[in-house]
Design a protein around this nucleic acid. Sequence first.
DNA 1: AAGACGGGGAT
DNA 2: ATCCCAGTCTT
Length: 380
Amino acid sequence: MEEQILDQLYADMEVLEKENDMLPPVKRIKEASVPLLQWYRRHARTLPWRESPTPYHVWVSEIMLQQTRVEAVKAYYERFLAELSDIQALADVKDERLMKLWEGLGYYNRARNLKRAAEEAVLTYGGKLPDSYEELLKLPGIGSYTAGAVASIAYGIPVPAVDGNVLRVISRLLASTEDILKPSLKKKMEELLTEAMPKENAGDFNQALMEIGALVCIPNGQPHCGECPLRGLCLSNRYQKTDSIPVKTPKKSRRVQERTVLAVACGSEVLIHKRPDKGLLAGLYELPNTEGHLEKGQVYAYLGISEEDILVMERLPEAKHIFSHVEWRMTGYYIKLKEEWGKLRDSRDNLPGELVDKADAESRYALPGAFKAYVGYLFH
DNA sequence: AAGACGGGGAT
DNA sequence: ATCCCAGTCTT
């Protein structure tokens, strides 16, 4: 008798599991949205940009959050908003000040595009951000993710915001083995979510997916499936595939470049150089540097000086800086020029950069971290 | 489709 | 040392 009951129970469970397995993706996401939103209401972090989610606030935060961790963004966001509290202020900010506010955050084109978009908002949209996904998408620096995030969070428009978190969470939920680095997969995901997402709570739904990706369905270590509200619906959890999903093709290794960095002082001044406004670290300042590991003689030639112009010259230790796509292996020289030499206009003009007051160099100009190992010799 | 574009924290 | 982050733009 008892055995029969158990058999029936197992049979029922099997049917239920099979039904669960057969659930089409759209329905699976729709079912997941209920416990997901419930979970989000309890676990949403308190974040500065959530206090008053105006379009401007959401926009600035989303740009800063591109490829950047929440913890890193917080302080930058507060300082940025304190100084540039509305779109007009952003449109009016001096480029140099803008870069200083962004210094250390990386991907500096984000800041330039932010200002460009603000100028366009002032010019074309009456000083406000446009209120449709399509119009947002036209602004510089706003791609499908950011347009979706601003549209849904600030305006309540039911469009998805697919970032790395969402790609990972949904891929696991559906046990999809497609490569999430492929643009085509992201597009499919956006179409799927457009159909499956709740039309009423779009902003919360999008944020909930990202939040659960950041806190539970995490990228590197083991996901915390035990505390996941979606574990009953998650096919990767059921088939123990969270180790292999999401699938990502390995990326190419970065190239290595040798460079020589020069810490040049002359009296109370130091030598800095403005980088071109395209390419790596565009528009930021740097210590003069050039490709290759230079000997002393090559350094004189590079600086356009001769040996008798120099008061002190010493070799500095090697240093390394890693960007995402290139690695700099640097060597350096500290050079103190004779003060009287620095007073000659001709000699100053031939330098690869400009001599500026030491105190100014630190407070006014954005000097990226790549030169950290060598700026110390100049300023301290 | 592939590469450029930063910096830092976790493993 | 490697991964990867609330991605976008250019080639």
